[in-house]
Simulated assay, not measured.
Amino acid sequence: MVADGLRVLFCGINPGLMSAATGHHFARPGNRFWPVLHLSGFTPRLLRPAEQQELLSYGLGITNVVARATARADELTAEEYIEGGRLLAEKVTRLRPRWLAVVGVTAYRAAFADRTAKVGPQERTIGDTGIWVLPNPSGLNAHWTPATMAEEFRRLREAADGPG
């Protein structure tokens, strides 16, 4: 679900089995992406995964680093992450979003060979597109609460909404 010139292109790691079955990003019950997106002010109401197409009307899009569905992200290989990062960079170059938001610091580190990356804005860009690493909203990432995740998403929203 992408388009040219988005404010933010969100990028998950890869589809989980529920997302692969439904065709909707972050579809697993308990995944906090959609609630956090709303809490941070990106969407005026809580969207369900089946309503992901509405993101385009807010200047938002969504994609993945790796297309292959797995039960857990740790089933992906280093080669899949590297190839996914290469393909993602091509997509970003073509679509020119203002920000690429990679949801998961481990995925960003693996896809872009940046072992020291931390959550937040990155020095690296892809053309004129800034890169922001967000916490993974999976329920397995328990040390980030919905409130602390929403604060990081809000920081990105403010950057995306600002002059530029």
Rank of each mutant, 00 (worst) to 15 (best):
P44K: 11
V65F: 11
D128A: 13
E54H: 05
A71D: 15
L95W: 00
W34I: 10
G85K: 08
R98N: 06
L47Y: 00
T70S: 13
L55F: 09
A50D: 09
W34S: 08
E79S: 10
Q53Y: 12
G41R: 07
G127H: 04
P121M: 13
T106Y: 10
V119P: 10
L47R: 00
A67Q: 01
A147Y: 08
E123F: 08
R32T: 11
P49G: 09
R72T: 13
R48H: 13
L140A: 15
L140D: 07
V102M: 06
R72M: 14
L55E: 10
T43P: 07
G130D: 01
L47K: 00
R68K: 08
I62P: 01
L46K: 05
F112W: 12
V133C: 01
H25V: 12
P137C: 07
L56C: 08
N136L: 02
E123H: 12
G120L: 07
R124E: 13
E79H: 12
G130P: 00
S138M: 10
V92A: 14
A117L: 02
N64P: 02
L56A: 10
T63G: 03
I82E: 14
L56P: 10
Q53E: 14
W34T: 09
R109D: 03
G41L: 05
R109Q: 03
I131K: 01
L60C: 02
T145W: 05
W132I: 05
